[in-house]
Design a protein around this nucleic acid. Structure first.
Lengths: 135, 135
DNA sequence: GTAATTGCAAAAGATTTGCCCCATT
DNA sequence: AATGGGGCAAATCTTTTGCAATTAC
């Protein structure tokens, strides 16, 4: 099989994902990476994100409500919350019983290897101003 | 506010989504719709899908493992299963306790309006041939 | 030295939009 | 008749890819 090499760009992309909790898009990672390697290319960012995903070091998040793909460097099991109002996307713990991807009582399923849970609603930051407006 | 009109193309798009369980892409809906209205345009399909989503009659499914957006005309709460092997995407019942979008023990969440649960793995149809190969 | 990886630019997809005409109400 | 909606094509956006040059090992 193919030998993988360590490159500065790959390391930096992984670092960026480990250093943030904002679940950046490829574009955003590109912008951040450019501050360190000014001539890194967007293609390299995409290629590395794909590679890191294949290695299980990074995962893709596809917001349920449209919007472009975001990336997550936290590989421990967790769910995501999306605020429909401000667009925030943050981690939340998985509810009890979901830690192990084994709950397959449904027909037609042979094996569950991963669970992807998104909660959609409004975040605390958005709810407060909303209440203030309610006279 | 704006008055909405009923058009043949809108009705047909909704019918297509109600008549299938395959969660078609916009392209696939377009192909089906063309068999009824040969000169319907892809733009119309997208515009109507967006409209129907706004009306809460249709929802978008964004496969966790890449692949383009699919659409679902079944609005009763349910989860989705994706087979990584054959790409199948089908409905599964929500596990107990998830019927009501209310489970917000996590910090930072004010209100949960929807739950989007995807189970990823291999389907029964894919697991069998796989076993047959295991000598 | 060899081959994986990069940068760049072009290509490929997917989705949106402007504009003018047609159809529903 | 008024105007929401459709068709068509161009425009956008996001992501992928080919290729020659570069770099890690």
């Amino acid at each position: 099989m193919k030998k993988t090499r360590h490159t500065r760009q790959r390391g930096i992309i992984l670092d960026i994902l480990h250093d943030t909790k904002t679940h950046p898009t490829a574009e955003a990672i590109y912008r951040d990476a450019r501050r360190i390697i000014p001539n890194i290319s967007l293609g390299t960012v995409y290629r590395n994100l794909g590679f890191l995903q294949g290695q299980g070091l990074v995962r893709e998040i596809r917001p349920a409500d449209g919007g472009s793909t975001r990336f997550d460097g936290e590989m421990a099991a967790h769910a995501h919350f999306h605020c429909l109002n401000c667009g925030a996307l943050f981690d939340v713990p998985l509810p009890q019983g979901f830690e192990q991807p084994s709950c397959s009582d449904a027909e037609g399923i042979a094996r569950i290897s991963a669970i992807d849970l998104h909660l959609i609603g409004s975040c605390a930051g958005c709810a407060e101003p909303e209440m203030a407006l309610t006279h």
